[in-house]
């Protein structure tokens, strides 16, 4: 059971968004692994989505600023690599927000090794094709809908 102070910090973290996909909070993304309070020090433990994701630096700064703004002076951000982040940790609400934003939400991570039909987030057709496994950011692939012809991003499973 989280203490009231930890609850408050978690609700503040709900206001920190991914700089690349601003509809998702870092809690939706599932990258906040723990919050520890040691005396007056607040430690937020996060895990990177991809090894080279440049958003991690921006996210650490945003967490620090958000907590300082609310009176937490002594903030420490730690990184952990194991267990490795998976898109299965993304919240259901996060997936809904992604779809509404025009990005197809990730399928279950056990589909990583096979090709899946990805539904178009615009017209919901299943008749789509992969244009590139690598998109505008490390976490996305580029698809196109054969029905409505719109290209779209797929937040690829990981």
């Amino acid at each position: 059971m989280a203490t009231p102070e930890k609850q408050e910090i978690l609700s503040l973290l709900k206001e920190v968004c991914d700089p690349e996909v601003p509809v998702l909070t870092i809690l939706d993304l599932g990258i906040v692994r723990d919050v520890k309070i040691n005396g007056d020090e607040v430690e937020v433990i996060i895990t990177p989505t991809y090894s080279g994701c440049p958003a991690m630096d921006a996210i650490s700064i945003d967490i620090r600023l958000k907590l300082i703004e609310h009176g937490y002076k002594n903030v420490k951000i730690s990184f952990t690599l194991s267990p490795a982040w998976t898109t299965d940790w993304m919240s259901e609400e996060g997936k809904r927000k992604l779809e509404a934003y025009g990005i197809a939400a990730p399928h279950r991570s056990d589909t990583l090794r096979r090709d899946e039909r990805i539904a178009c987030p615009q017209c919901h057709s299943n008749d789509t094709k992969l244009l590139s496994q690598f998109g505008s950011t490390a976490c996305k692939a580029l698809y196109q809908c054969n029905e409505c012809k719109e290209p779209f991003d797929y937040f690829k499973c990981h």
Partner: peptide, 20 residues
Amino acid sequence: LEQDIAITNISLDLLGQARN
């Protein structure tokens, strides 16, 4: 363009691994 983005994304993954 798509393959330019692909190879540089792979590069970014490798760079992140190297940093770790």
